[in-house]
Amino acid sequence: MKPNIIIADDHPLILKGLYDYLIEKNYNVIASAKNGKEALALIKAHQPDIAILDIKMPFFSGLEIAEKCKTENLSTKIVLITFEKDEKTYNEAKALDIYGYVLKEFALEEIENCIKSVINDKPYFSPELISYIEINQGPIKLKSLTDAELKVLKLVGDNKTASEIAKELFISSRTVEKHKSHIRKKLALNSKSTSLYLFAKENSKFL
Protein backbone atom coordinates (compact mmCIF):
# COMPACT_ATOMS: atom_id res chain seq x y z
CA MET A 1 0.00 0.00 0.00
CA LYS A 2 1.31 3.43 -0.96
CA PRO A 3 1.86 5.82 1.95
CA ASN A 4 -0.10 9.05 2.45
CA ILE A 5 2.21 11.98 1.79
CA ILE A 6 2.12 15.73 2.43
CA ILE A 7 4.67 17.99 0.71
CA ALA A 8 5.70 21.55 1.54
CA ASP A 9 8.04 24.02 -0.17
CA ASP A 10 7.93 27.78 -0.52
CA HIS A 11 9.30 27.61 -4.10
CA PRO A 12 6.24 27.07 -6.35
CA LEU A 13 8.27 25.40 -9.13
CA ILE A 14 9.93 22.91 -6.80
CA LEU A 15 6.59 22.20 -5.10
CA LYS A 16 4.86 21.62 -8.45
CA GLY A 17 7.74 19.52 -9.80
CA LEU A 18 7.75 17.30 -6.74
CA TYR A 19 3.95 17.02 -6.67
CA ASP A 20 3.73 16.11 -10.38
CA TYR A 21 6.54 13.58 -10.06
CA LEU A 22 5.01 11.80 -7.07
CA ILE A 23 1.53 11.73 -8.65
CA GLU A 24 3.04 10.33 -11.86
CA LYS A 25 4.64 7.58 -9.76
CA ASN A 26 1.21 6.85 -8.22
CA TYR A 27 2.01 8.10 -4.74
CA ASN A 28 -0.88 9.27 -2.62
CA VAL A 29 -0.10 12.98 -2.17
CA ILE A 30 -3.00 14.17 -0.02
CA ALA A 31 -2.01 17.84 0.28
CA SER A 32 0.70 20.39 -0.36
CA ALA A 33 1.72 23.56 1.49
CA LYS A 34 3.69 26.68 0.59
CA ASN A 35 4.93 27.51 4.08
CA GLY A 36 5.69 25.95 7.45
CA LYS A 37 2.47 27.09 9.12
CA GLU A 38 0.29 25.42 6.47
CA ALA A 39 2.49 22.31 6.54
CA LEU A 40 2.16 21.89 10.32
CA ALA A 41 -1.62 22.40 10.19
CA LEU A 42 -1.91 19.75 7.44
CA ILE A 43 0.26 17.27 9.36
CA LYS A 44 -1.89 17.73 12.48
CA ALA A 45 -5.13 17.44 10.53
CA HIS A 46 -4.23 14.44 8.34
CA GLN A 47 -1.38 12.73 10.25
CA PRO A 48 0.13 11.44 6.98
CA ASP A 49 2.65 8.59 6.91
CA ILE A 50 5.31 10.91 5.47
CA ALA A 51 5.79 14.69 5.27
CA ILE A 52 8.37 15.91 2.73
CA LEU A 53 9.39 19.38 3.85
CA ASP A 54 11.69 22.09 2.62
CA ILE A 55 14.13 23.04 5.38
CA LYS A 56 13.81 26.80 4.90
CA MET A 57 10.24 28.07 4.78
CA PRO A 58 8.35 31.10 6.14
CA PHE A 59 6.80 30.75 9.65
CA PHE A 60 8.34 27.37 10.50
CA SER A 61 11.38 25.64 9.04
CA GLY A 62 11.31 21.92 8.30
CA LEU A 63 13.45 21.37 11.40
CA GLU A 64 11.05 23.34 13.61
CA ILE A 65 8.11 21.31 12.29
CA ALA A 66 10.04 18.09 12.98
CA GLU A 67 10.69 19.28 16.52
CA LYS A 68 6.98 20.09 17.08
CA CYS A 69 5.95 16.68 15.70
CA LYS A 70 8.41 14.98 18.03
CA THR A 71 7.19 16.97 21.06
CA GLU A 72 3.56 16.16 20.24
CA ASN A 73 4.30 12.50 19.51
CA LEU A 74 2.92 12.66 15.97
CA SER A 75 3.73 9.51 14.03
CA THR A 76 4.37 11.28 10.69
CA LYS A 77 7.86 10.53 9.41
CA ILE A 78 9.67 13.70 8.36
CA VAL A 79 11.81 13.91 5.21
CA LEU A 80 13.72 17.15 4.61
CA ILE A 81 14.68 18.44 1.18
CA THR A 82 17.30 21.14 1.00
CA PHE A 83 20.17 22.76 -0.86
CA GLU A 84 22.11 22.83 2.44
CA LYS A 85 25.17 20.62 2.61
CA ASP A 86 25.65 21.72 6.15
CA GLU A 87 26.99 19.57 8.97
CA LYS A 88 25.23 21.57 11.71
CA THR A 89 21.82 21.19 10.02
CA TYR A 90 22.53 17.51 9.33
CA ASN A 91 23.39 16.92 13.01
CA GLU A 92 20.23 18.76 14.13
CA ALA A 93 18.18 16.58 11.77
CA LYS A 94 19.77 13.41 13.15
CA ALA A 95 19.09 14.59 16.73
CA LEU A 96 15.39 15.00 15.86
CA ASP A 97 15.21 11.43 14.46
CA ILE A 98 14.38 12.73 11.02
CA TYR A 99 13.78 9.92 8.53
CA GLY A 100 15.17 11.48 5.39
CA TYR A 101 17.47 14.23 4.20
CA VAL A 102 17.53 14.71 0.44
CA LEU A 103 19.52 17.33 -1.46
CA LYS A 104 17.30 19.29 -3.84
CA GLU A 105 19.61 18.89 -6.83
CA PHE A 106 19.04 15.11 -6.55
CA ALA A 107 15.46 15.26 -5.23
CA LEU A 108 13.72 13.69 -8.22
CA GLU A 109 16.38 10.99 -8.60
CA GLU A 110 16.43 10.12 -4.91
CA ILE A 111 12.98 10.81 -3.51
CA GLU A 112 11.59 7.40 -4.54
CA ASN A 113 14.46 5.53 -2.91
CA CYS A 114 13.98 7.73 0.13
CA ILE A 115 10.25 6.99 0.39
CA LYS A 116 10.84 3.23 -0.04
CA SER A 117 13.47 3.33 2.68
CA VAL A 118 11.27 5.35 5.06
CA ILE A 119 8.30 2.99 4.54
CA ASN A 120 10.60 0.17 5.67
CA ASP A 121 11.48 2.17 8.76
CA LYS A 122 15.00 2.93 7.55
CA PRO A 123 16.27 6.52 7.55
CA TYR A 124 17.59 7.79 4.20
CA PHE A 125 20.28 10.45 3.81
CA SER A 126 21.56 11.60 0.40
CA PRO A 127 24.80 9.72 -0.34
CA GLU A 128 26.19 12.97 -1.75
CA LEU A 129 25.56 14.69 1.59
CA ILE A 130 27.13 11.90 3.65
CA SER A 131 30.29 11.86 1.54
CA TYR A 132 30.48 15.69 1.62
CA ILE A 133 30.25 15.73 5.42
CA GLU A 134 32.76 12.90 5.79
CA ILE A 135 35.23 14.67 3.49
CA ASN A 136 34.83 17.89 5.45
CA GLN A 137 34.93 16.31 8.86
CA GLY A 138 38.52 15.14 8.91
CA PRO A 139 39.79 11.83 10.25
CA ILE A 140 37.78 10.68 13.25
CA LYS A 141 41.02 9.86 15.10
CA LEU A 142 41.84 13.58 15.33
CA LYS A 143 39.06 13.85 17.92
CA SER A 144 41.16 11.73 20.28
CA LEU A 145 43.95 14.35 20.43
CA THR A 146 44.18 16.90 23.23
CA ASP A 147 44.39 20.63 22.46
CA ALA A 148 48.12 20.60 23.21
CA GLU A 149 48.65 17.64 20.86
CA LEU A 150 46.68 19.36 18.10
CA LYS A 151 48.84 22.48 18.46
CA VAL A 152 52.02 20.39 18.22
CA LEU A 153 50.68 18.52 15.18
CA LYS A 154 49.77 21.78 13.43
CA LEU A 155 53.27 23.16 14.00
CA VAL A 156 54.82 19.90 12.76
CA GLY A 157 52.81 20.45 9.57
CA ASP A 158 54.31 23.97 9.38
CA ASN A 159 57.70 22.22 9.22
CA LYS A 160 58.83 23.48 12.65
CA THR A 161 61.53 21.62 14.55
CA ALA A 162 60.99 20.29 18.07
CA SER A 163 62.96 23.17 19.59
CA GLU A 164 61.00 25.76 17.54
CA ILE A 165 57.72 24.17 18.66
CA ALA A 166 58.96 24.14 22.28
CA LYS A 167 59.79 27.84 22.09
CA GLU A 168 56.44 28.74 20.52
CA LEU A 169 54.37 26.76 23.04
CA PHE A 170 56.55 27.61 26.07
CA ILE A 171 57.28 23.95 26.81
CA SER A 172 60.47 21.87 26.78
CA SER A 173 61.70 19.97 23.70
CA ARG A 174 61.29 16.79 25.75
CA THR A 175 57.58 17.55 26.24
CA VAL A 176 57.24 18.16 22.48
CA GLU A 177 58.76 14.73 21.77
CA LYS A 178 56.40 13.17 24.34
CA HIS A 179 53.42 14.81 22.60
CA LYS A 180 54.64 13.55 19.22
CA SER A 181 54.94 10.02 20.56
CA HIS A 182 51.37 10.16 21.97
CA ILE A 183 50.05 11.59 18.68
CA ARG A 184 51.68 8.79 16.67
CA LYS A 185 50.12 6.21 18.97
CA LYS A 186 46.64 7.75 18.81
CA LEU A 187 46.75 8.17 15.04
CA ALA A 188 48.30 4.72 14.54
CA LEU A 189 51.22 6.17 12.56
CA ASN A 190 54.61 4.51 12.13
CA SER A 191 57.66 5.80 14.00
CA LYS A 192 59.32 7.46 10.99
CA SER A 193 59.91 11.13 11.61
CA THR A 194 58.14 12.03 8.34
CA SER A 195 54.89 10.20 9.20
CA LEU A 196 53.66 13.01 11.47
CA TYR A 197 54.63 15.72 9.01
CA LEU A 198 52.85 13.98 6.10
CA PHE A 199 49.71 13.39 8.18
CA ALA A 200 49.66 17.02 9.35
CA LYS A 201 50.11 18.28 5.78
CA GLU A 202 47.35 16.04 4.43
CA ASN A 203 44.91 17.14 7.13
CA SER A 204 46.01 20.76 7.61
CA LYS A 205 42.50 22.15 7.09
CA PHE A 206 41.25 20.25 10.13
CA LEU A 207 44.01 21.49 12.44
Rank of each mutant, 00 (worst) to 15 (best):
P58R: 04
K178L: 13
V176Q: 07
D86Q: 04
G138K: 02
S75A: 13
S204P: 08
I5C: 04
L198K: 15
E112T: 14
H46M: 01
I65Q: 01
K77F: 03
Y99T: 03
P48S: 07
P127W: 04
E110D: 05
L103F: 12
N4R: 05
E105V: 06
E64L: 04
N73C: 14
I140Y: 13
N203R: 08
I81P: 07
K167N: 11
N190Q: 09
F83Y: 12
E105Q: 14
E84Y: 11
L198D: 15
K44E: 06
I140L: 14
I7N: 01
E92W: 02
N35W: 05
I98R: 02
E164D: 11
E112L: 10
F60E: 00
T175Y: 12
I140D: 14
L150I: 13
A188N: 15
F199I: 05
E84T: 08
K68I: 04
H46N: 15
K141A: 14
D97T: 04
K34D: 13
S117Q: 02
K180Q: 08
N113I: 11
I65K: 06
N4A: 10
E38G: 08
A45I: 14
P127E: 09
A148K: 13
E109V: 11
S61F: 00
D9T: 03
Y27G: 09
P127F: 08
I30H: 00
D10T: 00
E38Q: 07
S172G: 12
A66F: 01
I130C: 08
Y90R: 05
T76C: 01
A8F: 00
D54A: 01
Y99Q: 07
H46Y: 08
I111L: 05
P12W: 02
I140Q: 14
K104S: 05
K94R: 12
K2V: 13
S131M: 11
L22A: 01
V152I: 08
E168D: 15
L145H: 05
K185Q: 14
K167W: 07
K154V: 04
Y132H: 06
S126M: 06
K192M: 10
N28D: 10
I140N: 12
L207F: 12
P58K: 08
I183P: 06
Y124T: 05
R184Y: 08
E84V: 07
G62H: 07
T76L: 01
K160S: 04
Y101L: 03
I98E: 05
A148N: 13
L40D: 00
E134P: 09
I119R: 06
S181P: 10
S195A: 12
K116I: 10
L15Q: 04
N159L: 14
C114G: 09
P58E: 00
K16M: 11
Y21T: 12
K85C: 04
E149P: 13
D121E: 15
A93R: 00
K68W: 00
